[in-house]
Design a binder for these strands. Structure first.
Lengths: 247, 247
DNA sequence: CGTGAAATTGAGGTAAATCAAGAGATGTGG
DNA sequence: CCACATCTCTTGATTTACCTCAATTTCACG
């Protein structure tokens, strides 16, 4: 079925960059029952405290996984892009400890936990691949702790931009050193643990230093090596194995 | 076998607080081949970049999972206590993105990935339980990002102490509101993304406010409610389900 | 009882927060 | 198509939480 192949493209593409799927496994993934929905921007998909019975595959658009502190501040703990399943954890953790929102209009596919459990039982390698996905997600969290805990604003932002570009490359959403990046400065602030004002100043500095060109939703990185250096960025934690996107 | 039961106690105890293990499953866990080792304090168990062929179950003692930035700063991204398998990720992620060190003398059990894969194949519920463990670990990382990104030193430290106490309770290493906590101020600093000096000042403030008593390795929390409030601590992210330790 | 690690204290400096205001964008409805 | 609201970005002035540097004191322990 061409349509269903197309739908799953970003996730399958990501899995195939690590595992060689058998024809059977690929078929099983393509035929996973999925309810596709189009969601406006700034809409919560699930909320902290929910007990969802399905998980959400991002087909297009950007999402943010976030928490609100008792003091009312928002911390974004992850950005989601095409191919990600940001709440896959809910397959094994009953109550959600995070909220998930769209940053842009998104096309998402809801897959029931039942269907996911079923495919995991029948295809242990797919189960391992999903497990692995959540482990990579964990590795990214570790890097974020380090980024927020031990780097200054300037380098922190540089690191974030490096990560986003590489992840977008993996799913074919970046050509070379350019990509669409519809994330506002205030959203970056919530992800980096700084204020909007500071994000603004740091971005200006990065521009002035010739490390990035950022205009509207469009990011271009004229000097990848220097940006990587500024962000102390080593893509090893993304566990892309031999994927060229890391280069 | 009494000895092997004893060895696995902390991990099995943790799993059983969530899953009801069948006799079969419990036997399989107790019989997991494990190479027990005693390790001095401040010894790396594995290092970033390693490709280990086994994972490490902590039987006793405290460990830290950390990264070193290009600038030479250390960020601790997790504390490990009895029952944890801090490098279980290496089962599916070939290259380690973190280093693991002992903070105190530790008794650890090395379990080969082969043995782990084998038990996961034969007991899918155990596979799910291990997967779940790594998901809870991920949830803790998310909370740490939030803690470091959005709370001030004082509240950040309060939060950390709350988390440690609850986790120690789960494995029976805390009575009521008291526990052994052999973590130095400089280690707390590396975990919280602040300096040792600042940790010291913040701890003094917490003591002065009557929220904690901390003398040497011994932590006592005279006013749990106020400490929780200061740390904005809600144990939901630890996903303890009905475990009393969360109370 | 000495010795090194851990904890503590003080003084001065800085990255980033806060507060406040304005300038572009972008979109909506009349 | 313009008026108006709203969101995002930008800039400046001031404040502060935390850092840096540098001693000193306390403590654990062989």
């Amino acid at each position: 079925m061409h349509t269903s192949f197309h739908r799953y493209n970003p996730m399958i593409r990501k899995l195939e960059s690590i595992f060689k799927l058998t024809e059977d496994e690929r078929q099983a993934l393509e035929n996973l029952p999925m309810q596709v929905a189009v969601i406006k921007d700034d809409q919560d998909i699930v909320r902290e405290g929910d007990c969802p019975s399905r998980s959400c595959l991002i087909l297009s658009g950007f999402t943010a996984t976030y928490k609100i502190t008792a003091g009312g501040k928002r911390q974004i703990v992850a950005f989601g892009i095409a191919g990600d399943i940001p709440d896959l954890q809910s397959l094994h953790l009953k109550v959600l400890d995070i909220s998930l929102t769209t940053l842009t209009p998104c096309q998402v596919g809801f897959i029931t936990h039942e269907a996911l459990r079923d495919i995991c039982t029948r295809y242990p390698r797919i189960a391992a691949a999903f497990w692995r996905e959540t482990l990579v997600e964990g590795a990214i969290f570790r890097e974020w702790v380090t980024n927020v805990g031990r780097r200054e604003g300037y380098n922190r932002m540089a690191h974030m931009l490096c990560e986003l570009l590489v992840r977008l490359r993996v799913v074919g959403l970046a050509e070379d050193h350019t990509c669409d990046l519809p994330i506002t400065q205030s959203e970056f602030a919530d992800a980096l643990g700084v204020t909007t004002v500071h994000v603004n100043r740091v971005l200006q500095q990065l521009r002035a230093d010739g490390l990035i060109k950022l205009k509207g939703d469009r990011l271009n990185i004229p000097d990848w090596d220097r940006l990587k250096e500024a962000g102390e960025f080593d893509p090893a934690y993304l566990h892309l194995e031999n994927n060229q996107a890391a280069a």
